[in-house]
Nucleic acid binder design. Sequence first.
DNA 1: GCCGTTTTCGGCCCGACTGTTTTCAGTCG
Length: 577
Amino acid sequence: MRNAEIAAALRELGILYELDGADRFRVLAYKEAARTIAQSPVSVEQLAKEGRLTELPGVGKTLAQKVETLLETGTIPSADKLKAKFPATLVEVTRVPGLGAKTARRIYDEAGVENLVQLKEAAEQGRLSGIRGLGPKTEENILAALEGVTEDGLGERLLLSQVLPIAEQIRADLLELGVAERIEIAGSARRWAETCKDLDLIAVTPDPAALAEALATHGLAAESRRGGDAFASVLTHSGLKVDLRIGPEETFGDLLQHFTGSAAHNVQLRERALARGLSVSEHGIARVEGKRVHKFADEAGVYDLLGLPFIEPELREGRGEIEAGDTGELPDLVEVDDIRGDLHCHTTLSDGRNSLDEMAEAARGRGYAYLAVTDHSASHGFGNHVTARQLAKRIEEIRAWNESAPRGFRLLAGSEVNIDTDGSPDYPDELLAELDWVIGSVHTSFKISERAMTERVIAAMEHPLVDCIGHLTGRLLLRREPYAVDIERIAEAAARTGTMMEINGNPNRRDLNEGHAKLAAEAGVRIVCNTDAHGTETLANIRYSVATARRAWLSAKQIANTRAWRSFAPLRKRASR
DNA sequence: GCCGTTTTCGGCCCGACTGTTTTCAGTCG
C-alpha cells in the first residue's frame, strides 16, 4: 500500500470521527498524521514491517496500530464501525467549500442528505433553510459551490509554472502603475511548492481602492470576486484565484510571514512563541501578558524576536526547520546563480525545437560553462529516436564545435538512453564510451512491480557508462502517478556506484522530488540540477530544479553541477574507468 | 490522539469572515 493511500484512509477516518462529533484535537491528530505519512519519502508500509511507525512525528501507539491493521486487513475497524453508523458518502459532503463536518452532520440528521446529489436537490428545494444555523444565503452558497465541483473532485490545483508567471506579471504591472509601494508574492508560490491552489499577494499602498481597482481591471483577470480596504480577489482567465491583501508598511513583515505559511510552519512557530510568552499573528507579536505589540516591516524581525535566524520560504513546511534554526543547523541553500552548466537537454536531432547551435548559444547566454546535449536514444518510442550512426555523427559535430568554441564554454556529447526492463542501456558500450555524459532514464514499461523497477534502476546504475539517472519516478504532476521505487535501496546503490541522480526541472516533473532528493543527498549521492529543456526558452526551468533542491534542504556543495568543468569532470563515473 | 527545557496529565495557533444570530458557531487559510 502506498503512502498516499494510507494517508487517505487516516484522513477519511479523521473526518468520520469529526462527523461523529469527536474531540477536535483528536480529529486534528488524524489529519496531522495523514500529512506526515503523505510526505514521507520512504515507504510507510516498510516502516510498519520494521515496527518503526512511531518514529513518524504525530504517530503514536494508537495510530501506529491502526495503520498496521490497515496494512494487514485492508480496512480499519473503527472506520467500519462509523460507516455503519452513518453513510460514508457524508465525507464527500464535507469537501464542499463552506461546509464542514458539523454542518454536514446536521444536514444529514435533519434533512436526510447523504451525498452530493441529495445535497443539491435539498438546496434547490429550499429544504435546508429550516435547519438551525442555516438560511437562504447558505443554500445559495452551497449551490454555487457545487457548480465548482468537477469530475475530478473539488479544489483543483495548478502547476507552479502556471501560477508563477501570472504572479510575476501582475506584480510587475501593479508596481509599474504606481498604485502600490510594495507587492510580494506569498503563499505556496513563494515557497516554490509543486502545485498551488491559489495565489496570495501582499501589498502596501496609500490608496487601497485604486489598487483593488487596478487588480480587478488587470488584463489577466476574468472576474472580480470581491474587494475592500484590506482585500481584493479576482479569478483569472486560466481559473486561478488571486487574493491580494493590503496592509500597513509597519506590519508588512508580519503579514508576509503569515501569508507565506505553510500552515504547519506557522502552527509550530506560534507554539514556540507561546512557550516564550508571545503570541504571533499577522498583526505582529504580542506579549501574552501585557500590551506591547512588536510590529515588523521586515520578515527577518519576526524570526529574530522568536530567537530564530531567517528561515528561507522553501524550508517553511514544518519539517524540522524551526528546530534546525534553533540549533544553528539550517542549510546554506543552493541558488540558481550557483549552477554552472545544464546536463540534460534536447535538440532537433530528437524531439527538441532548437538546433545544436541555438541551444549552445542560449546556454552560453545564461552564463553557463558547459551544456550536455542529451538527445533520446535508439529505442525512444515516439518516432524521434537517434540511431547509433546518427549519434556517432553528432559526437563528431560536437567535437568540431568545441574546436572553435568561445573560451570558457564547452558542449558535452551526451545521450539520454533508455533503461530496458533488464536495466541495460540501449546503445552498445563502445558508443557510450565515446560520449562525455550519459543519463539513463526509464521511458517504457512503467507498470512493473516496485521490486522489479528498483532492480531495473539499480542494474542501470551498476553499468560503468551510465553517469546519471534521469527523472527517477517518471511522474507527471497532476497527470501521472510516479512509479513505485524503493528510494532507500536506490540511493544506497547510487552512492556505492558513484552514479549521480538528477532533479529534473521540467515543472511537470520536479523529479527527484524534494523528499527523494533529501534522502539521496543524505545517503551521499551527488545530485545534479537539470532542465530537460526541449527548447532554448525552457533552459530557464532550472529555477524549478533549484527550487526542489532548496526544498530538499540542499546546499551548493551537494549539487555537482555547481562546480566548474574541471572539478565536475572527474566526478563522472566514466572518469574513473 | 499526541506529546513533554514548566507537564505522563492537561494542554494542544490565530484571526477574519460569514451567516446566522441578539452573542456566536462554523469554516477557512
